[in-house]
Design a protein around this nucleic acid. Structure first.
Lengths: 248, 248
DNA sequence: TAGACATTAACGATGCGTTATGGTTT
DNA sequence: TAAACCATAACGCATCGTTAATGTCT
């Protein structure tokens, strides 16, 4: 008879628990080679080796199902499993990295800004969620990089400039000015400049942005940035932008 | 009566499922403000807002329990929750980054090396697990950096040099040479040099390495690197090292 | 009356931890 | 006979997804 161990021994050797080995038996991942007449599990040398493979692959993050596939089927599937695992890990790293930046930003706001409430955090988070919905991962990276380049101060300032822009446009609209007048065309140029600054001139990002405004509605998007714009203002501003284009 | 919605409406508005809202109700996270006489749930404006906060905090990775705490207790706990979340995220990023390096390495071995089997992968993984057990995260980063600096070729070569070193020592031992003879002292110097190269001269890493060998047993550690050393060889080599030290 | 929408109830998935109850080995 | 060790069975966790059986709104 070769060396055969009982569950407790095997558990000690591998650092797993007896319960875990029971589980592996139950799901057919690692069956004991025999049982004693009274039903006690006996594991042979081959099972010990198999268990080592199991714990190793588990360490890599494979699910028990995937591990079973890797160990039963020929090794062709193991390479694919590793490829898939790499992809999963990279996805996670990307998400987590972006998430960390967001949470850190929120914590900083909470610590420094006075009026920072859960309400405000919520808005910021909703903007982020919207971004993840409309920008590709690659675009998100680009945007993050640009944010780092221009700095927080400039971003705050740009926010104010948007505010002023809307206020000025609303005033013009209320006064009944023709949207194609010179004053509005100047404001339309300012608008285009702010957008260009945000997109960094990237046409893909501009397209995604446009798509976001179209799908969500401009007022909703801006509301999440804490800006209220009266209905009809956008159509009015768009006329000015159109006038600009037909000039060129 | 204010605006009050039924589950389906609320679900559509937020993109959640009806089941999820049922769940939030069941665990007391979001209760409808009223019910119709027939038991249908009715949500008011306040509940809609609360749900927005819930989904936002959920996006950050907080558990439903934590979210409930953040929303019921004053906002002091939310900052702590974010701090904790940042820590968790950073831990994960660290682990995932190391894991990615490992899995990529294993995949590359599988693709290029001929004799790469699950057995070999298992050994590599076990070495990694052992390392995570004995080296601190900071030390692991240092080791990773050194590995990148010296390059794979040098690592392979060092492996061979270790092999040769053991072979030479074994020959000396078998021939009954005194471990304090000049030849063995030369080998002991070679041994020290290889260790220094691995540790990069870092004493903390050297200490962790020594601890690993002491706890796991030298033969076991080396076995995971695919090297077999006869029993007694280590004691013999240690005598030579001791002789070196007493020289100095 | 049909069709959309609501309700409660209960199992499923992941990977075991944690009792509970009782037999086996030494 | 006591101390370890073993067995099976079943609930628990976290967060809902997924039927299922049945009642309500319009």
């Amino acid at each position: 008879m070769t060396t055969s161990m009982r569950v407790g021994d095997l558990a000690k050797r591998t650092g797993l628990t007896v319960r875990t080995l029971h589980h592996y038996d139950a799901i057919g991942l690692l069956r004991p080679s025999t049982r004693t007449s009274t039903g006690h599990r006996l594991y042979g040398k081959k099972e010990v080796e198999r268990l080592q493979h199991i714990t190793s692959l588990r360490y890599l993050g494979l699910s028990l199902d995937e591990i079973r596939d890797c160990l039963t089927k020929p090794e062709h599937s193991i390479e694919r499993a590793l490829e898939m695992q790499i992809e999963r890990i990279e996805e996670q790293i990307g998400r987590q990295t972006r998430l960390r930046a967001l949470v850190q930003h929120l914590r900083d706001r909470l610590r420094t800004a006075e009026g920072a409430s859960v309400d405000e955090l919520t808005r910021t988070i909703e903007v982020t969620i919207m971004h993840e919905k409309y920008y590709s991962p690659e675009q998100l990276r680009q945007l993050e990089q640009r944010r780092a380049e221009v700095g927080d101060d400039r971003i705050q300032e740009a926010q104010r400039e948007w505010q002023e822009l809307f206020t000025a446009c609303k005033k013009a609209m209320d006064e009944g000015l023709d949207p194609t007048c010179e004053e509005m065309k100047a404001l339309a140029r300012k608008r285009a400049a702010l957008i260009r600054e945000f997109t960094g001139g990237d046409l893909g990002i501009a397209a995604s942005l446009a798509n976001m405004y179209r799908s969500e509605g401009p007022a909703n998007v801006l509301a999440r940035h804490g800006m209220q714009v009266p209905s009809g203002l956008f159509e009015y501003m768009d006329k000015a932008t159109a006038a600009l284009r037909s000039d060129a």
